[in-house]
Nucleic acid binder design. Structure first.
Lengths: 152, 152
DNA sequence: TATATTTGAATCGTGCACGATTTAATCTTT
DNA sequence: AAAGATTAAATCGTGCACGATTCAAATATA
């Protein structure tokens, strides 16, 4: 028996392609985001602010599955770039409210080009629109299951 | 118009659930891997060694889509744990060959329990086996497309 | 109303990721 | 065989991720 452990093969795992695809996707986004002067995780935070406006650190974390230990330094970097404001709430001094500056709002126009360019760059791919949609559906279902599992 | 940019909504992205699902998956694995004394990326390196035996750093990188800037320090940590050996090749002194120590080989037995326990912990989930398989298929297809895209 | 508990951010330490560069070895080309 | 190009690891700096802890504020409970 040459190598009797197919359950350990890379190609039989779900975790590995998820990990690799996530990293490669980030790499695809990077050149477009460099034009906006932000990183990929910073882009995700900006997405939540463009979509839901002013929010607490906690709320951003719930949407992105991140906590303050990751978000606080990241938000400070966005603040240094003058894209966001961080203001401690008057009514509950534990919470910090994050909101867009004018510069941050303006960046949205440029950001709209990003998904367009990404989609364009996949026009020639061998994956059909339909397959992508069903994939995305399962992906969100999986995300839901994982989230429940993690918080058990 | 309240928020006219659905193409920027988190739920309409493919990148975001991929990123989040990958991170949450790693979190699910972590307690099981702690029992083996290794991290998730270290586990992936061990998987390649259990599956393909002795290999160069370059080869491991090709399988995991990682480069020496990530692998070299990670491999040094695995070496410190006495799970692997790093030996510069005699025939081509540029390459470093990575192989399992006896301890590293022995760890495979324990590692076999990991996928079992992961699968078990998903028995109650709302996703069917069939759906997972088709999802995995698309995931590998996507990985292929992304890899080509990145190296363009 | 004191005391205990919970909550939201921040801080700290470790380990990835990764672009860019460096170094040494090998391969190509003339 | 010498010069130039390529290759494989390593190194460096920055920015995440995240477990664990700390701190202050708010809430619950005795």
């Amino acid at each position: 028996m040459a190598n009797p452990a197919p359950e350990l093969y890379l190609e039989n795992q779900l975790c590995f392609p998820l990990y690799a695809a996530s990293r490669l996707t980030t790499k695809i986004y990077t050149p477009f985001l460099e034009a906006l002067g932000i990183t990929y995780p910073q882009y995700l935070v900006m997405l939540t602010l463009w979509q839901f406006q002013e929010q607490s650190v906690k709320s951003i974390g719930e949407r992105l599955f991140l906590e303050s230990n990751t978000l606080t330094p990241l938000l400070k970097r966005l603040e240094q770039k003058d894209l966001i404001q961080r203001i401690r709430s008057k009514t509950d001094e534990r919470t910090v409210m994050v909101s867009l500056t004018q510069t941050g709002m303006n960046l949205k126009e440029q950001a709209l080009e990003v998904p367009k360019k990404i989609v364009e760059s996949f026009h020639d791919s061998t994956i059909s629109e339909e397959e992508i949609l069903s994939f995305q559906k399962t992906l969100f279902k999986l995300l839901n299951v994982l989230d429940k599992k993690v918080s058990e």
